[in-house]
Computed example of a mutant assay.
Amino acid sequence: MSLNDNVLIKIREMRESFTPVERLVGDYILENTEEIPHLSIKELAQSSKTSDASVLRFCKTMGYSGYRNFIVSISASLGSRDEDSKAQYTDIQPGDDLSTIISNISLNNCKSIEDTLSVIDRKEIARAVELLRHSKRIVFFGIGASGIICMDGEQKFSRINKMCHAYTDGHSQLTAATLLEKDDVAIFISNSGATSDIIDALEIAQKNKAKCIAITKYNKSELAERADIVLSISTPEITIRSGAMGSRIAMLTIIDILFAGVASAEYDEVKTYLTKTHNILKKKLRN
């Protein structure tokens, strides 16, 4: 695991999927971050009311081979946090003036992207780009706010002549998943990773041997555990999530990365398609 990864963000995002013992360790770390780099494994175990073995298992759950590597990453994450300590997620408050709202929403969106970059696996991005490049068809699945992300993906990839479609309701998703084949790529978008319609469509897609990519919150959700490739996002810890603002921005960023990755790898061919679509739209606007 790269030292550029922010393990504190990962602990925060994975908290709800921890076992009870893992949560004891994780909560203690999040509540006492400054002292963690100075604790031995035994001291952390005693402070979190667990055991040495439990702390080591927690480190492995977070992707580290041992306690020392975990502590080094904690120290790196603390340094990163100190640099932007003033930039924290801010919830909507009653009576906020527009100036405050503009600043807070802009900050939240920027933080969603920054935190997502801390949890995303770049090797998984590379694998996803290769699958999309060689796919026969790309199909997006998402409900509600996630459906908007699907439509954005459909619009982008259609412009470079990729056969794709977005399905945003449960019935059409089941139908689309049933018709998938082994050379198709299905992209499932769900912040929680537990939306029943999405899981149902995923199960059918996998039975048809389609490759499945998940864009979801960094956790141990059913979607994350079952997909072939998982592209994780990080979302703000705020109580009001009007329009799923934080997750929407993070997911759109992932779609943009995938699109740019495919477009860059196939630039000469893609440039022709983009030019053609740009010209026809420009002509339409003049009429």
Rank of each mutant, 00 (worst) to 15 (best):
E35Y: 05
E35T: 08
I36T: 02
I36M: 01
H38N: 09
L39F: 15
S40E: 03
K42Q: 12
L44Y: 04
L44W: 07
A45E: 03
Q46H: 14
T50L: 07
T50W: 08
A53Q: 07
A53L: 10
A53K: 11
S54W: 12
V55P: 05
V55Q: 02
R57C: 11
F58Q: 06
C59P: 06
K60T: 13
K60S: 12
M62F: 03
M62E: 04
S65V: 03
S65N: 11
Y67T: 02
Y67K: 05
Y67V: 01
R68V: 05
I71P: 02
S73W: 01
I74E: 00
S77P: 13
G79W: 02
D82V: 00
D84L: 10
S85A: 15
K86W: 10
K86H: 12
K86G: 13
Q88A: 06
Y89C: 03
T90M: 06
D91K: 14
I92D: 03
Q93E: 14
P94K: 11
G95E: 00
G95Q: 10
D96Y: 07
D96R: 15
D96W: 13
D97L: 10
D97I: 07
S99Q: 06
S99W: 03
I101D: 00
I102Y: 11
I102C: 11
N104D: 10
I105C: 04
I105P: 02
L107Y: 07
N108P: 09
C110P: 00
C110D: 09
C110F: 15
D115G: 06
L117S: 07
L117M: 13
D121W: 05
R122N: 03
K123E: 13
K123Q: 12
E124A: 12
I125A: 06
E130W: 09
L132V: 10
K136S: 15
R137H: 10
F141V: 03
G144Y: 03
A145H: 11
A145R: 06
G147E: 04
C150I: 11
C150P: 06
C150E: 04
M151K: 15
D152W: 08
